[in-house]
């Protein structure tokens, strides 16, 4: 078995290597174009390796970084705020539902569960948030509406349930209040599930562009991803003007093809460097909620 499997393992490694190369090709392309010379692109198109190494796209972006920096600030603020708040509130709600000791918990669970089955949809939500609550064009639109996700509450509850009931009993005997048991016993013991959810929530917020698309007109409140999407469209616009001879001077000076890709790198780069390190939590967390649920 052992000798025979050596060939199999080598082939498997080879297959995986090919697969991985295919998977990261889009990343390589993005990086390569961002470091290319605009003239080379115009001549030969995009390449997986820059013909001439060139930083002008990045220097163009960092010459006037206020817009990007601002979007970074906005995105970082609401991502962190939303993650912290939603984890706190979700676990706060998961706690009473766990350990089966509160009357009416089945009703509350169903109250939560029903929202996973049926929703009012995009339009009524839009009207509620803009016409009645006036959350559009404020930073709160990113934070408040999505604070509670029933799915996450159930995941945390499942985890709380797996903690030994004796912890609860002995805390009660020691005279701890429910909130204190939640904060000092249940929460510290639930780090694995909390870390996973924190990561997922943060990632979802960081990658959010829909909210800006729907609710934000004020460019100072654009999220990073939405800004990126806008730029993809705006540079195209500039190019069209250039081609029809309307925008004569400036448009030609923008190394638009390379700047576009460099923008994507500037936006995606930090997240791409950071998130793979949390990969093991993802793998763990995916199975934490599902095995027992």
């Amino acid at each position: 078995m052992k000798k025979k499997s050596l060939l199999g393992q080598t082939l498997l490694m080879l297959a995986f290597t090919v697969l991985c190369v295919l998977f990261i090709m889009p990343f390589v392309l993005l990086v390569s174009v961002s470091f290319s010379k605009e003239a080379d692109i115009a001549m030969n198109g995009y390449k997986f390796w820059p013909e001439n190494f060139d930083l002008s796209a990045y220097s163009y972006i960092f010459k006037n970084p206020t817009t990007i920096l601002n979007a970074y600030k906005v995105t970082a603020f609401y991502s962190i705020a939303a993650t912290v708040l939603s984890l706190f509130l979700q676990s706060l709600m998961a706690y009473p539902l766990s350990w089966g000791r509160m009357r009416g918990r089945n009703f509350i669970s169903f109250f939560l569960y029903f929202t996973m089955l049926f929703s009012g949809g995009m339009v009524p939500t839009y009207i509620l948030l803009t016409q009645y609550m006036h959350l559009d064009n404020t930073i709160w639109i990113y934070i408040i509406p999505g604070l509670i996700s029933p799915w996450n509450i159930f995941m945390i509850r499942t985890f709380f349930n797996s903690l030994p009931y004796e912890i609860y009993e002995s805390s009660v005997i020691d005279g701890a209040s429910e909130f204190r048991i939640y904060l000092q016993m249940a929460m510290p013991l639930s780090k694995p599930v909390l870390a996973t959810l924190a990561l997922m929530t943060f990632l979802g917020k960081w990658n959010d562009w829909n909210t800006s698309l729907m609710y934000i007109d004020n460019s100072e409140l654009f999220s990073l991803q939405y800004l990126l999407q806008k730029i993809l469209k705006d540079i195209t616009l500039l190019q069209q003007m250039e081609e029809s001879g309307l925008g004569m001077i400036n448009a030609a000076q923008i190394p638009s093809e390379t700047v576009r890709m460099a923008m994507a790198i500037v936006v995606a780069g930090p997240a791409l460097v950071i998130f793979p390190f949390f990969q093991k939590y993802f793998v763990k967390g995916m199975t934490v909620g599902s095995v027992k649920g």
């Binding site: 979700q90 706690y95 000791r101 509350i108 109250f111 049926f118 929703s119 009012g120």
Partner: peptide, 26 residues
């Protein structure tokens, strides 16, 4: 005290998940 812990999240779900359902009359 357990009900009190649920209060804010329940309110949020009521406002952001159930109110829009009423808006379906649109």
């Amino acid at each position: 005290s357990l009900y009190a812990m649920c209060a804010v999240p329940v309110l949020l779900v009521l406002v952001f998940n159930y109110l829009p359902m009423y808006g379906l009359i649109i």
